[in-house]
C-alpha cells in the first residue's frame, strides 16, 4: 500500500482519486443484454480483474471503456473524463490491448509500433525513444526488425501488449492478452503487467483464466451474462465460496454415455455438477463432509472414481457455486491447457 500511495503522489493525483470509474454500465444488442449494471473503480497502480466465461460481456465492457461503443446507460470516466462526453480526452489517457492479434504481420515489430505511435500523434524524437523502451519491456528488442509473420504466437501477443503502451497511458485495458500462448510468454506478459502497475498505471485485465487473476489482481469482478455476480478484493470474493470444495475426477469421453450420465447426476445431486474438457466437477457447498454421499451416488451411476481429488476453494469454485457452471468452456479450457 505504501508503494501505491507513493505512486499516486508521484503522478500528482490526489490519493484515493480513481483512474477509472465505471458507473451503472448497461448495454444490450436487441434483446440480448451484454452488460447489465456494471460498476467498479480502479486506482492508479492497481490491477483490476474482470473474470468471466466467454460471452460474459467482458469485451463489450472494454469496447465501451475504449469509447468505441456507446452504452445504453451509465458512464465510464478515465482520469475524470467521460468517455461519452469527452471521448478523445479520455482516449488520450488510455492504452488498449484487444483480444485479437491487432498487429500487422507483414510489418516488423518496430514498424508496427511506429505506425500506431504516429496515429497516437507522438512526435518523431519521442517516438523512437518510446519504441525502444517498449521493445525492451516486452522482450522483442532483438527481433524488432524481423517481420511479425515470423514470430511465434507468444511474441505476437507480447507485441500486441506493447502497442497498447504507446503514449505512456495512465490506464491500460487488456482484453484476454494471453489466449493461446506458451507458458513462458504468458509469464512474461503477466510480469510486464505487474511492473506497469507498479509504475502507477491503472490496469483492467479481463480473462477467463482465474489463475491469472489470482496472480495479478488485488480486486476483481466476476461477471456472467453481463451481470456482476461477485465483486471486491480477491480474498473476499474467494471467501464467498465458504466451506465449499470442488470434487474433481476424470470423465473421459466415450467411456460413458456422457450427456445422459451428467443429466442424471445433475437431477440427483443437490449441488452444481459440470463437465469440462473430460473432467467432472462437483461443488460441495458444505465441504468435504458431503463427499461420501456424493461418491456413493457416483458409484451408483457407474462413474469410475480413478484420479478423484478434492480441491480447496478458489475463484473458479466461487464461479461454479454461484452460477452452477464452469468458468471456462471446453474450448477455452483446452486452450489454457495447451498454454
Amino acid at each position: 500500500m505504501a508503494t501505491h500511495a507513493a505512486v499516486q503522489e508521484a503522478r500528482g493525483q490526489a490519493a484515493g482519486d480513481p483512474s477509472i470509474v465505471v458507473e451503472g454500465l448497461r448495454k444490450s444488442f436487441g434483446k440480448n443484454v451484454a452488460v447489465d449494471g456494471l460498476s467498479f473503480t480502479v486506482h492508479p497502480g492497481e490491477i483490476f480483474g474482470l473474470l468471466g466465461p466467454n460471452g460474459a460481456g467482458k469485451s463489450t465492457t472494454l469496447s465501451i471503456m475504449a469509447g468505441l461503443i456507446r452504452p445504453d446507460s451509465g458512464d465510464v470516466k478515465i482520469g475524470g473524463h467521460s468517455v461519452i462526453r469527452e471521448t478523445q480526452r479520455a482516449q488520450r489517457l488510455m492504452g488498449v490491448v484487444p483480444q485479437g492479434l491487432a498487429v500487422y504481420e507483414e510489418l516488423t515489430a518496430a514498424q508496427n509500433l511506429d505506425y500506431f505511435a504516429k496515429l497516437r500523434g507522438i512526435e518523431k524524437k519521442r517516438r523512437r525513444q518510446e519504441i525502444e523502451e517498449i521493445l525492451e519491456l516486452v522482450g522483442l528488442s532483438g527481433v524488432a526488425h524481423r517481420k511479425v509473420a515470423q514470430y511465434s504466437g507468444g511474441m505476437k501477443r507480447r507485441l500486441n501488449v506493447g502497442i497498447g503502451l504507446l503514449g505512456r497511458p495512465r490506464v491500460l485495458l487488456l482484453d484476454e492478452p494471453t489466449v493461446g500462448i506458451d507458458p513462458q510468454s504468458r509469464r512474461h506478459i503477466l510480469d510486464s503487467v505487474r511492473r506497469l502497475a507498479e509504475s502507477g498505471m491503472a490496469v483492467v485485465y479481463t480473462t477467463h483464466y482465474m489463475e491469472e487473476v489470482e496472480y495479478l489482481c488485488s480486486r476483481l469482478a466476476i461477471i456472467d451474462r453481463g451481470r456482476v455476480i461477485a465483486h471486491g478484493p480477491i480474498d473476499e470474493v474467494r471467501a464467498l465460496a465458504g466451506d465449499a470444495v470442488v470434487l474433481r475426477l476424470p470423465f473421459p469421453r466415450g467411456v460413458l454415455d456422457e450427456a445422459a450420465k451428467v443429466e442424471s447426476l445433475q437431477n440427483t445431486l443437490p449441488m452444481p455438477v459440470e463437465v469440462t474438457s473430460g473432467e467432472l466437477r462437483i461443488v460441495l457447498p458444505q465441504g468435504s463432509r458431503q463427499a461420501p454421499a456424493v461418491i456413493e451416488e457416483l458409484q451408483r451411476h457407474g462413474v469410475p472414481l480413478d484420479g478423484m481429488r478434492l480441491e480447496s476453494p478458489n475463484l473458479e469454485t466461487v464461479f461454479l457455486s454461484l452460477t452452477g457452471k464452469a468458468l471456462r468452456d471446453g474450448k477455452a479450457a483446452e486452450e489454457g491447457a495447451m498454454a
Partner: peptide
C-alpha cells in the same frame, strides 16, 4: 475489424 486493429485504432482517438 476482425483482428481488433480497428478497436485499437479507434481507441487512439481516430
Amino acid at each position: 475489424r476482425s483482428t481488433g486493429a480497428y478497436l485499437r485504432i479507434r481507441a487512439l482517438g481516430v
